[in-house]
Amino acid sequence: MYNGPEHYLDKDAAAGRVMAHARLLLKLSRRFEAVAPAGLRHSAHVANYKLGIIIIHADNGAVAAKIRQLSQRLGNELSKGGVECSGIEVKVQPRQIPCQSTTSTQKPISGKAIGMLRSTTENLPEGPLRKALENLVKRAATTE
């Protein structure tokens, strides 16, 4: 009978401890989502649990400050879930958005705009601005 990968991980002592900790974090995460105010549920998450301290990562400083203000109440509520909570530690840790692009996309420039840029470039004295505009016009002309 196949019980999934957890069955094999639970048999090894070290892996079993990791699995138990993962289950505890999952339980704390669900409990946090249930007891945290609506505005904070999606802006913070349980990151770890060490020696009775629940570590929460907040997306920004404002969320972190609010969680710190509510830490006593949140700690009491999280303890009701069956986990000892002697304190909450909050860290600002913005989430990485995997689909967010860090490179810019090239936007097309209309023929009229290219013409205006060319005439502006021709009227500029030699220098870094003129060179930058010449490069822009050259790149824009090759993408049309």
Rank of each mutant, 00 (worst) to 15 (best):
N60G: 04
T105K: 06
S119I: 07
A34K: 13
E6H: 12
G115S: 14
A141H: 09
R68V: 06
H57M: 00
T143S: 07
G16Y: 05
I56R: 02
G111T: 13
G16I: 08
T102H: 10
L28F: 05
H21Y: 14
S79M: 04
R31A: 11
A20S: 11
R41K: 14
N60K: 11
A14Y: 09
K91N: 05
D12L: 07
A15Q: 05
E122C: 03
C99M: 06
L28C: 07
G111E: 14
L25S: 10
P128R: 11
H7L: 07
V46C: 01
I88W: 05
Q96I: 12
T142A: 15
D12Q: 01
L124W: 05
P108D: 12
L129S: 01
I67H: 02
Q100D: 06
G61H: 00
P98Q: 05
L129F: 00
R41E: 13
E33I: 00
S119T: 14
L9Q: 08
M19E: 02
I88N: 00
Y2L: 09
G81F: 06
K107S: 15
I97K: 01
G16F: 10
N3Q: 12
L28W: 06
P128V: 13
A141Y: 05
S101W: 01
I109C: 03
S71N: 12
G4H: 09
K112C: 09
A140C: 06
E126K: 12
G39L: 08
R41L: 13
S71G: 09
V92S: 08
R17C: 04
R30C: 12
E144P: 03
L78T: 03
H57R: 00
N48S: 12
L9C: 04
K11T: 07
T143Y: 09
P128A: 14
N135A: 14
A132D: 05
A113H: 08
Q69M: 10
A15V: 03
R41H: 09
L9F: 14
F32D: 04
I97N: 02
M19I: 11
A141F: 10
R41T: 14
K27R: 15
G127S: 04
T121V: 12
Y2F: 08
D12V: 10
G81W: 03
A38V: 13
G61Y: 00
T105V: 14
K91D: 02
A36C: 09
S104V: 08
A62P: 08
S101E: 10
S43I: 00
V90M: 10
V35I: 14
H21P: 06
E89A: 15
A20G: 13
